[in-house]
Design a protein around this nucleic acid. Structure first.
Length: 335
DNA sequence: CGTGTTTGACCGGCGC
DNA sequence: GCGCCGGTCAAACACG
């Protein structure tokens, strides 16, 4: 095992920073693939903003970087669909003790599960409103139901409950959960988010925040919560894919570049794409495929300072690569 | 005034 | 059927 690691130029340990702050346990790299939720989970660590180490761009690219520069949601989710046909779930071990579903670091997965998995047939959005939003874009919600404007019979209670009877559920957007070592709850990713809700998380002192991309017609949402088991870990779950350029990127490459170097800033997809050549991805992806790591029990880490899933209009080539990578991961959990 | 946050209420799915 | 809970809404509020 350890020998393996030593021989492996891409030993996990190499992903750790010298001071290694925050690395709680073998980092996790998990895929939570489910027909209904399409939730995938990644782990990476983000340096605290004040951590000098963070100022040094990591030689390794984050998974987010990978996502941004070479893979888009569609591709990724497609890859998941293709490679993770089963709904197996890699049991996380980051949370020592494998806590129960709702209170562990795996909550995103669990949460995701609640949204659909339990009912295989509900491989669809549980919110018709959501669907409406996606379909109609911006004006949607109100206009669509407009319970208040059109019929206020019993709108008192059904302010939004007066929605059309038939809720044609639609498949949930692919979701990707990231575990991030950070002191910042809401990690910057280059996009603008509007917080639309916050809920207390059961069995956790930390609330969960709900954000929506402020860009019109963009239905991407994300949830941010802090692991109660390891408060230093922020769990960010993205859902959907942006259909627009990253605002940060639009501001110029300089800004984007700065963003990348910023410990607390998750650079824009495009920015990363231009900053990190794709070939940097190959070694990382390849190493990820290294079977010798199988004994790591599906653990793997992306050492980075950036994150945030993003699509870049598509890039088929990487699809294959990612696909391979995913396959290897899947294979590992099959036996 | 535009934009974003806070927060209580509501809705719908799910388990019992 | 009921209660729990995750997710969302939207009014009120804060801020630049």
């Amino acid at each position: 095992m350890s020998d393996d690691k030593n021989n492996d130029p891409f030993n996990y340990n190499h992903f750790y920073t010298p001071d290694n702050i925050g690395v709680v346990s073998p980092p996790e790299f998990r895929f939570f693939d489910d027909d209904s939720t399409n939730l995938s989970m990644f782990t990476h660590h983000q340096q605290a903003p004040h951590n000098p180490q963070a100022l040094n761009p990591s030689p390794f690219m984050s998974f987010t970087g990978c996502l941004r520069s070479s893979v888009d949601y569609n591709t990724l989710s497609r890859a998941f669909d293709l490679s993770c046909s089963s709904s197996e779930v890699i049991t996380p071990n980051l949370d020592e003790g494998g806590s129960s579903k709702k209170c562990s670091i795996t909550e995103p997965a669990a949460t995701a599960s609640e949204n659909g998995p339990l009912s295989p047939n509900s491989s669809v959005s549980s919110s018709s409103k959501e669907a409406a939003v996606e379909e109609d874009g911006d004006n949607s919600k109100k206009d669509e139901d407009d319970p208040k404007t059109t019929c206020n019979d019993d709108d008192d209670k059904s302010k939004k409950g007066n929605k059309p009877k038939k809720k044609e559920k639609r498949p949930r957007e692919p979701r990707f959960a990231f575990l991030t070592k950070s002191e910042i709850d809401h990690l910057e990713d280059g996009y603008r988010w509007r917080k639309y809700g916050q809920k207390a998380v059961k069995n956790s002192p930390y609330p969960r925040s709900y954000y929506r991309c402020t860009t019109q017609k963009c239905t991407v949402k994300k949830r941010v919560e802090r692991s109660f088991q390891d408060p230093s870990i922020v769990i960010t779950t993205y859902e959907g894919q942006h259909n627009h350029e990253c605002p940060a990127n639009l501001r110029g490459n300089a800004a984007a570049a700065a963003a990348i170097l910023s410990p607390s800033f998750f650079a824009s997809p495009s920015a990363i794409g231009t900053t990190f050549p794709h070939n940097l991805l190959l070694p990382q992806f390849l190493q990820m495929r290294n079977p010798s790591r199988a004994n790591s029990s599906n653990s793997m880490m992306f050492y980075p300072q950036t994150l945030a899933p993003q699509q870049q209009q598509f890039q088929p080539p990487d699809h294959g690569l990612l696909h391979d990578m995913l396959n290897s991961v899947v294979q590992k959990k099959e036996p």
